[in-house]
């Protein structure tokens, strides 16, 4: 019997199904499971002849799956390679594939959330906000193009690397070198976020102290420019990281802070219709 090899077409279809469909049928019970099934279907159809075999192979992927789906593409690529090996009679079974999937989804989710969602997106948005600060659509267009090109090429790369390298592909995202890159990128992200905070948060006070000294220009600005926005960020950070509050709770506390501030005359937007 000739060795079974997945065709380019089947792999491309599998990738497309994952790229688009990993979250479309999301529920709290089975988050990305159906996306995963759809990604494996073209492969399984090609590797196994009978409906029964196909059905049995797909059963493996009916286990719960959820990770950061963009970086998680590498896992889908890996299982494509494993399923191919399994169809060729190598000593791999569904249980083993599921063990690998289950073992990877946590770490990949952690890395993906902090690197893509927590760093890459804010950096790109930070730059885009800068480009759009005069009401220009340029920043939005920049973000649309860069994010979609980088992610589409990146996910394709991860899928095929996962397929080719199998377990070694994990090195790409958790290896020592990858850690060094990640740490540096997060550093860049943190600096950009600092700049975004200083540029986009605008909190000022119109309060005048006895002796006709304006609190904002006469006192606060001389200590550190934009000290109020900085204090607000640190306050929220403290509430969330030390007091373990949810963002919504923090928002409600800010409503209270705003109300008290207005009553004391510390905050006043000084507007009229």
């Amino acid at each position: 019997m000739a060795e079974k090899k997945l065709s380019k077409k089947a792999l491309a279809k599998s990738f497309r199904n994952w790229y688009y469909g990993h979250l479309t049928c999301f529920s709290q019970e089975h988050m990305q499971t159906f996306g995963y099934l759809c990604a494996m279907l073209p492969l399984v159809e090609e590797l196994y002849e009978t409906k029964e075999e196909q059905k049995e192979a797909l059963q493996t992927y009916s286990a719960f799956f959820n990770t950061e789906p963009q970086l998680g593409t590498v896992i889908v690529g890996m299982t494509a390679g494993l399923e191919e090996a399994k169809a060729n009679g190598e000593e791999i079974d569904g249980e083993m594939i599921n063990g690998i999937r289950a073992g990877l989804m946590g770490p990949v989710a952690g890395i993906g959330d902090s690197l893509l969602v927590g760093t890459l997106i804010p950096i790109l948005l930070g730059v885009a906000l800068g480009m759009s600060s005069g009401g220009s659509p340029l920043g939005a267009i920049f973000y649309i193009l860069v994010y979609n090109i980088v992610l589409t090429l990146g996910m394709r790369f991860l899928y095929y690397k996962g397929y080719e390298l199998g377990g070694k592909a994990v090195e790409l995202i958790v290896g020592e070198k990858a850690n060094a890159i990640r740490e540096s990128v997060i550093m860049l992200g943190t600096i950009v976020i600092g700049a975004v905070a200083a540029t986009w948060i605008s909190i000022t006070t119109p309060m005048v102290l006895p002796g006709d000294i304006a609190l904002q220009t006469g006192v606060l600005d001389t200590i550190f420019p934009k000290i109020l926005p900085l204090a607000a960020v640190m306050f929220c950070y403290w509430l969330m990281s030390k007091k373990k509050m949810a963002p919504t709770t923090v928002m409600l506390i800010l409503v209270g802070v705003a109300l008290v501030g207005v009553l004391l005359g510390f905050f006043d937007p000084q507007l009229s219709y």
Partner: peptide, 19 residues
């Protein structure tokens, strides 16, 4: 209006907590 000016601090803090 004051709440509106304070809220962006929450967004930045969420991110800061993460990184």
């Amino acid at each position: 209006f004051t709440v509106g000016s304070l809220l962006p601090a929450v967004g930045i803090a969420i991110l800061l907590k993460q990184v």
